[in-house]
Write a protein that binds this DNA or RNA. Structure first.
Ligand code: ZN
Ligand code: ZN
Ligand code: ZN
Ligand code: ZN
Lengths: 168, 168
DNA sequence: TCCAAAACGCAATGTTATAACACAATTGTA
DNA sequence: TACAATTGTGTTATAACATTGCGTTTTGGA
């Protein structure tokens, strides 16, 4: 965790093609290093997930895949998602049953998310402090944490402004 | 949040009948105050949820209800669950698609959970520090938190001991 | 007693995820 | 290159979770 990208807000306008390019490049490099195969389906699913910062459901991905001539049965997309999850290239958002790209797949980590209920965007936020804080709380109960699900839903800066304007 | 019950670990052996009695009594009192109707289905669903500290899925509840002569279609149990959720008598655990009783429904709060992957028990943990910490982190990104999903999965004290013994 | 709102019964359907098994592609090895 | 083992994919079916719509019953209050 922690490179300069992480701090950038995805809620504001930004060069999203850069997000995509970087994610795809990182994925290819990672798979090369690990001698894992980023097959066409897997790569395409990752691209589809990165088309925006909106978490996508498996069946949304499935629809898009099938329109592109890929085979379109649930196992196809779930297998691709499993692969991407295993390699940390995406995260699953439990409260939405949806999947989102990870912008720092190099280092193993849990995903912590800010999810806007209005525009739907999900931003992954910095982890170390949160993780240590939560683990500290858990260990007070003698509990050994293995996986962490932290998903905060609410309003992003943009949508707060928008709803204020609407009030007027 | 915050009465003496909260700190007690549900992972160790305890007088669980006391948990049940207290939860049911609190529910009745709360509904009385709010002039809400804790109907037979709703009460029975709450009892079923409290039969242990294992989060239960809607269809597990449905099976048990039907064996008791209650109507057994999904909407029945989901409506009861919605009622109980609305009144804070239970929490939904997103990472499990399951429901668990709340031991302090008096005050409105989010549920933070320690979930043992071995025995399946889920313990709700104290909230205020976690909540303020998370909100602080979120507000640094200009994000306004409304709902919080915090679910830590791992090994409870008991199951840590057990797996150590198994290793020998 | 009558009414409106709340709760419930019921059937169908929608959504998310996995099981099981056959076949194809890839990789490492002799 | 042959060939076995592994890994990935196609396909069908089904499990698991959740909601919609509509009509009937119950309930509490005017
Ligand atoms: Zn972007
Ligand atoms: Zn937003
Ligand atoms: Zn108990
Ligand atoms: Zn346990």
């Amino acid at each position: 965790m922690q490179n300069s990208k992480v701090a950038e807000s995805i809620f504001s306008q930004h060069d999203h093609q850069h997000c995509i390019d970087q994610a795809l490049a990182a994925a290819k490099e990672l798979c090369r290093q690990r001698k894992s195969r980023l097959t066409p389906v897997r790569e395409r699913v990752l691209e589809l997930i990165w088309q925006s910062h909106l978490p996508l459901g498996a069946y949304q991905l499935l629809n898009q895949l099938s329109q592109e001539g890929f085979n379109s049965a649930p196992p196809t997309v779930y297998r691709a998602l499993d692969f991407l999850l295993d390699h940390g290239l995406i995260h699953r958002i439990a409260s939405l049953n949806a999947f989102i790209g990870c912008n720092c797949p190099q280092d193993q980590h849990h995903g912590y998310f800010l999810i806007c209920r209005d525009c739907g965007s999900a931003q992954e936020i910095e982890a170390e402090e949160i993780s240590s804080f939560l683990r500290q709380n858990a260990s007070a109960a003698g509990f050994k944490v293995e996986t962490e699900t932290v998903e905060l839903s609410g309003l992003c800066p943009q949508c707060q402004n928008r709803s204020q304007q609407d009030d007027q």
